[in-house]
């Protein structure tokens, strides 16, 4: 007795609405007053602060919803009102209680971390390295947000003058990794929502959140039929597959083709730019060259 084929693949369908579903669930739990707000510390270390900017651009939910309904934002050096030692007070006083730690940026290790000082505490410089050591072990969850925090990224690119490393290289504990340059607001908010509702999400063998990082860009690329038929763009601007130009979609696991960016309006490949693998370990060095015009013959 075989029932009719449901027609659409429920797995792929579900993956497009993941962050949204989690957030809807969060909203209903908040309405029922059953969700406990947790404390969040967001450290900006050695990087460009692009991940916090990306988060501020989140729309589903937006940043205001995050800090009013989901978490108490205890510390973020770009956004908090307090400054100087008063700001660091908030940070250091937190170490004894429950909190979730998000880290963006790599950790500079040269000269015992002196290349990145995030503030002064009792007259002593507090290095990025020290901050991660201090807060990393005691957090209930550590989330590495963006390329630099997850694997060194741009900050650790050759020649890496400040000897930057990932958060995981400093901490001997589970670090949830959300690579991307920057991290999409949904990847972070979806992960945070999952932690608030259900605890640690299911991760792959590199500790990436499977909900977002399970498919290759190449798997759902709208230009895939061109690839399969060997129709390749020879320069930027052509609408066919950009494989010969150096597209990294086939080695990059993330859901950009279905999620898209800037409140879901567009993404690189739709805008005729090959994927540069920004959400893959090893970016940027291992993903270069980003574009190549000197290529193999046509198939």
């Amino acid at each position: 007795m075989i029932e009719k084929n449901p027609g659409i693949c429920p797995m792929l369908n579900a993956s497009s609405g993941t962050a949204k579903n989690l957030i809807e669930k969060i909203k209903s739990e908040i309405m029922r007053n059953s969700l406990v707000k947790r404390d969040l510390i967001w450290l900006e270390l050695t990087g460009c602060s692009g991940n916090i900017i990306s988060l501020l651009n989140g729309s589903n939910p937006d940043f205001k919803f995050l800090i009013t309904n989901m978490v108490n934002l205890i510390y973020n050096n770009s956004l908090m009102a307090a400054e100087g030692e008063a700001a660091l007070d908030a940070l250091v006083n937190k170490t004894g209680s429950d909190y979730i730690l998000a880290v963006e940026g790599a950790i500079s290790t040269k000269n015992n971390g002196l290349y990145n000082i995030i503030g002064r505490w009792k007259g002593e410089p507090l290095t990025a390295l020290k901050a991660v050591q201090l807060l990393g072990d005691r957090a209930s969850h550590v989330i590495a947000v963006g390329a630099c925090a997850t694997h060194g990224g741009v900050s650790a690119a050759r020649p890496n003058p400040a000897e930057c490393v990932s958060v995981q290289s400093i901490l001997k504990r589970k670090v949830i990794k959300l690579p991307g340059c920057p991290c999409h607001p949904d990847w972070f908010l979806g992960t945070l929502a999952h932690i608030l509702l259900y605890g640690e999400p299911e991760l792959d063998d590199r500790d990436r959140h499977l909900l977002f990082y399970s498919m290759l860009i190449h798997d759902r690329c709208p230009r895939r039929s061109y690839f399969d038929n060997g129709v390749f763009a020879t320069r930027l601007g052509e609408k066919t597959c950009m494989f010969k130009l150096g597209c990294r979609g086939p080695v990059t696991r993330i859901d950009c083709p279905v999620r898209q960016w800037n409140s879901y309006v567009n993404w690189p490949i739709r805008d005729d730019t090959p994927c540069i693998g920004c959400a893959m370990f090893g970016f940027p060095d291992s993903m270069e060259p980003f574009i190549s015009y000197d290529t193999t013959r046509k198939r």
């Binding site: 690839f227 494989f243 130009l245 597209c247 086939p250 080695v251 090959p274 574009i291 190549s292 290529t295």
Partner: peptide, 10 residues
């Protein structure tokens, strides 16, 4: 596919 532009992870 994994060797776009004849390069692969550097």
């Amino acid at each position: 596919a994994a060797w776009a532009a004849a390069t692969h992870f550097g």
